[in-house]
């Protein structure tokens, strides 16, 4: 599988990273190089192998249902580029 300029632009768009045409162009061989190299994994026989789900055997713990957090609006908003009236502000979204 080799990717073209259009694919690079699509990936950039999915990643929400704006790229110029020149940047996208430069990424085509770069990404192809890397993806071509990782594709060697396809040759590994994985018949009957389950994908790894936990790195070290461990079980998912569950929390008790108790309110132990929140009510820290100042902390939540402290680093916001734009916060107004207790909200984060973003450019107007039209739904």
């Amino acid at each position: 599988m080799s990717i073209d300029l259009q694919t690079v632009k699509k990936i950039a768009s999915l990643s929400r990273i704006s790229v110029s045409d020149a940047e996208a162009q430069a990424m085509v061989p770069e990404l192809n190089n890397i993806l071509g190299w990782v594709e060697q994994l396809g040759e590994v026989d994985v018949t009957g192998v389950q994908p790894m789900t936990a790195v070290i055997p461990n079980h998912q713990r569950l929390r008790e249902d108790a309110v132990t957090d929140g009510d820290v609006r100042d902390k939540v908003l402290a680093n916001a580029p734009q916060a107004e009236h207790g909200f984060f502000a973003v450019p107007k979204v039209i739904e």
Partner: peptide, 28 residues
């Protein structure tokens, strides 16, 4: 670069060939 590679290998149609395969090889 890494975000874009990651986005690509998870994207529709490629997930199994890349990501699932990689998690199987990881198990090996």
């Amino acid at each position: 670069r890494r975000i874009m590679i990651g986005t690509y290998v998870l994207s529709a149609g490629f997930y199994d060939a890349y990501y699932t395969q990689a998690q199987k090889v990881r198990a090996l």
